[in-house]
Design a binder for these strands. Structure first.
Lengths: 245, 245
DNA sequence: CGCGATTTGTGCACCTCTTCACAAGCGCCT
DNA sequence: AGGCGCTTGTGAAGAGGTGCACAAATCGCG
C-alpha cells in the first residue's frame, strides 16, 4: 500500500521510462490496449488515434489518453499513436519483454483447459510445469508437458525459474499450494480456487472465480427483471414488504 | 436452500425486496461474502461477526458492514449476523433464489472445462445447453449434455429459457455469437473470448480474460524486480530492456 | 434492574478514478 | 510561410469507494 516515493529523489539521468507508479486501474487496462493494438497492427494500421484505440479496447478516449500519458508521451498531436512503438512501450512497462514461466498446479477440469489454452503462449507466457496431488494423474501428458507430483514443486520451480504460479486446485488444497509456491520464492499467484488465500506481504494474488462472475450477472438480470415488471417510474417504490417473521 | 419465502403475489405486487441501487463494488463482493457464509454455515457457525466474516472473505470489516448495510439491517448489535438469514438475504438480492439456466457456446479447450465445472451447479446455475460451430464436435456428450450446432441456438434458448449466455469461442466468432444471443433475448453475457463485444444498451457483458490476469501479475512482478534491484537509491540496472530504437 | 462488554451501522474525511473541456502541438494545404 | 483542422496531453471538477472512529443498540451477568 505504502508507496515508496522519495520526493525529490534524483531521477537518474537515464533514457529509461523508469517505472512511474501507475494507477492500478491503468495497469489493469494496459493489457486490453495491448490486445487491441496487436489487432490493429495485424489489420495493417501504422498509427491510431486515441478515439480509434479507445473504441477497439472498449473504453472512453479521454481515459485512454490519460492512461497512456502515464507512460510518457508517445503520441503525436494531430496524428495519433504509432502502433508499433506503443506496443513496445506497453510490453516494456508490463514486463513482457522477457518470457515468463508459469507453473500450473491442479490439473483437474479447469487446470486441464488452462494447460491447453494457447492464449498464454501467444502472449509471452510459457507454461513450464504442471503439478497435481493426485498420483493417478501424475505422468499424464498434456500439450507436451508431463504432469508431476506436487511434491516436486520446489525442485522444479527452481529449475524452471518459475515467476508466476497458477492455482487450479479444489478450494481445500489451495492454501497449502500457495504456501509451497511462496516457499520457493514465487511472488505472483493467480488463484482459480474459490477461497481466500493468505500470503505474506510482497506476494501478489489475483483471483478469478468463474461462479462469481455469473452471480454478478445474475444480480443485474434480477434487477432488470424487476424493472421491466415495474414499467415507467410510477411504481410504488415502497414495496410493502411481506417478508416478515 | 431453495427454501426462500417468496410471497408469490400475483402480478407485480410488492414482493420485490426494493432493489436499492447497490454500489457496483458492493455487488461484486456479495458473492464472495456468500461463499464465506456457506463455508461458515457448514462449519457449524450460527452467527458471525463482521470481523469474522470480513476475515473469511478477505476484506476490511468496515467495508463489509457498509456493504451489508446497503441490503438493510440484518445484523444484531453485540451479537453479529445470523448466518442463515444473511445467506438468504444475499441470495435473494443476487437473484439466486431461482435457478438460472446458462447456455455455453464454444466447446473448445476452455468451453469443455466450463461445461464440466461443478462450481456452477453448486451455486445455483444450470448449464442447460452446449453449442459449437464445428460440426465435428456436434453430438459429443459432455457431462450428460449433448453438444448442439450453434444454428439451433435460437430454438433451444427459448425452450430452455436461457437467461445467461457464456461465450467461450475463439475471438473472431464471439461477436456473431453475441449477436445471436441478444437476438433471442439474452441480456447477460459472460465473455471469455479476448475481444470487445458490442451489444445494445440493456445487455450486460462481463469479460474474463485469463491472459490479462497474467499480464497484470507480470507488471507487478516486473516492478518488484526493479525495486529490489534498487534497494534505496542505489542506481543499478535500469532494466535491461533494450528493445526498440 | 442496571451496567459493562461487545458489535453493528454510519457520518466524515481522504483518496482514487472518471470525465469534461480546452490549450498546446503537429502536419497538411494553399 | 502561414493558417487551418485535427489530435494529444492535462487541469479541474465530479463521482464513487474506502477506512476510521464513534454513537447507538443489544446481550449477559451480577
Amino acid at each position: 500500500m505504502s508507496q515508496h516515493r522519495h520526493p525529490g529523489a534524483p531521477g537518474r539521468a537515464g533514457a529509461v521510462p523508469a517505472l512511474p507508479d501507475l494507477p492500478e486501474a491503468t495497469v489493469a487496462r494496459l493489457p486490453e490496449y495491448l490486445r487491441a493494438l496487436h489487432a490493429l497492427s495485424e489489420a495493417g494500421h501504422d498509427t491510431v488515434s486515441s478515439e480509434g484505440l479507445a473504441n477497439a479496447a472498449g473504453v472512453n478516449s479521454a481515459k485512454l489518453r490519460k492512461d497512456l500519458s502515464h507512460l510518457g508521451s508517445y503520441g503525436t498531436r494531430g496524428v495519433g499513436y504509432d502502433v508499433t512503438l506503443l506496443i513496445e512501450q506497453i510490453e516494456s512497462v508490463l514486463g513482457l519483454t522477457q518470457c515468463r514461466s508459469v507453473a500450473l498446479v491442479g490439473v483437474g477440469n479447469l487446470g486441464h483447459a488452462l494447460a491447453g489454452y494457447d492464449g498464454f503462449a501467444s502472449r509471452g507466457f510459457r507454461i513450464a510445469a504442471l503439478f497435481d496431488a493426485d498420483r493417478a494423474r501424475v505422468g499424464e501428458e498434456i500439450n507436451g508437458l508431463v504432469v508431476r507430483h506436487v511434491d516436486e514443486l520446489a525442485r522444479v520451480a527452481v529449475e524452471e525459474s518459475i515467476s508466476i504460479g497458477v492455482i487450479a486446485t479444489p478450494a481445500p488444497a489451495a492454501q497449502a499450494v500457495a504456501d509451497q509456491l511462496v516457499a520457493v520464492g514465487v511472488t505472483s499467484i493467480l488463484n482459480f480456487a474459490p477461497c481466500v488465500l493468505s500470503v505474506p506481504e510482497g506476494v501478489d494474488v489475483r483471483k478469478v472465480d468463474l461462479a462469481i462472475e455469473l452471480q454478478i450477472l445474475s444480480f443485474h438480470e434480477h434487477r432488470k427483471a424487476s424493472l421491466t415488471a415495474l414499467p415507467g417510474g410510477l411504481v410504488a417504490t415502497d414495496t410493502q414488504e411481506a417478508i416478515g417473521t
